[in-house]
Design a protein around this nucleic acid. Structure first.
Lengths: 161, 161
DNA sequence: TGTCGATGGTTTTAATATGAAACCAGAATG
DNA sequence: CATTCTGGTTTCATATTAAAACCATCGACA
């Protein structure tokens, strides 16, 4: 269609699919705040400083995608809380990767006012590392997308010529 | 302003800043393709299937932000190529995190047609791990944002009451 | 128990961003 | 020198966004 954002939901690439779900301006920030313990609509809205209608739409989408779930508020009131599902929590590695990159490249010296630290030790984390199965560290040039064999292939169906 | 996307460029949070730069529908996909070796405008446009004006705008933004740079095409023609800078290449960890998450949560069984593998061994990578400085593995609940002390503090300037 | 403010949204409106297609200039090719 | 290919820009219709106004329900409290 014309002004409609292209739908990435059934791309073959896993990156594209992920972005189809959480690849907009706000979703990852909502997840960041949820991970930091913010659960209520108003809390999120104030912390993020975003328009309420947009927050509402995003929360709905994240719930639909099983990243957030609604639960009764923990303080006994009838209001509801938004909590991360296991699927949502697993996005923390994306957040860490973004944090480490942003920290390195998006701040002038001295401008950074927050560090991301381990809650227990209050010390920074190690930089993430990509490791091959043999344990060796790999870099940006080592990524490769390998097509899978046709999955339904049984005896006698394999490519022959 | 009214219909304008809120500017995240000077947020205090590193995640927000990162998203301000590469947090839109297309940027990370462009970077993925660039990492896969695609360098020419047409190549990118065909591979991504996106509108040319949007690609043009995104490339411009990525160049402005120092993630891509333009270079003369390698085949001797007068056309230009878009290549990742070191800053851009370092986004590979974000891509890997998104890939691993998407692979796990965004595909029906058997639907996945590509694996992300180590170029040399053609075998999958290990899942990324978040490690504290002591080497221990940490999870989503261990993230913490620690405010930095005021940086300019010298002798005698410290908080006293 | 009735009122009043807080909470959690939805609706409306104005502005901007997106996508598709048409258009165009310069480079390559013959 | 003509023709096609490449790399865009322009135009237009539509979608998405942000801000503000609005509104229903909940909670606190007199």
């Amino acid at each position: 269609m014309k002004g409609k954002r292209t739908n990435l939901d059934d791309a073959a690439c896993a990156i594209a699919r992920s972005l189809g779900v959480i690849g907009d301006w706000w979703s990852l920030l909502i997840i960041r705040d949820a991970l930091a313990g913010k659960r209520r609509f108003g809390e999120l809205q104030k912390s993020l400083g975003m328009a309420k209608n947009i927050l509402s739409a995003r929360l709905q989408k994240l719930v639909e995608h099983g990243i957030l779930a609604t639960a009764p508020a923990s303080d006994g009131t009838a209001y509801k809380a938004y909590v991360l599902t296991p699927k949502g929590k697993k996005l923390y590695l994306v957040l860490v990767a973004l944090w480490q990159w942003g920290e390195e490249f998006c701040f002038a010296p001295g401008e950074l006012t927050y560090d991301m630290v381990d809650r227990q030790t209050q010390k920074p984390f190690q930089p993430l590392e990509l490791r091959a199965r043999d344990g060796g560290v790999r870099g940006p040039g080592d990524l490769w997308a390998l097509p899978r064999r046709a999955p339904k292939a049984r005896r006698g169906t394999s490519s022959r010529r």
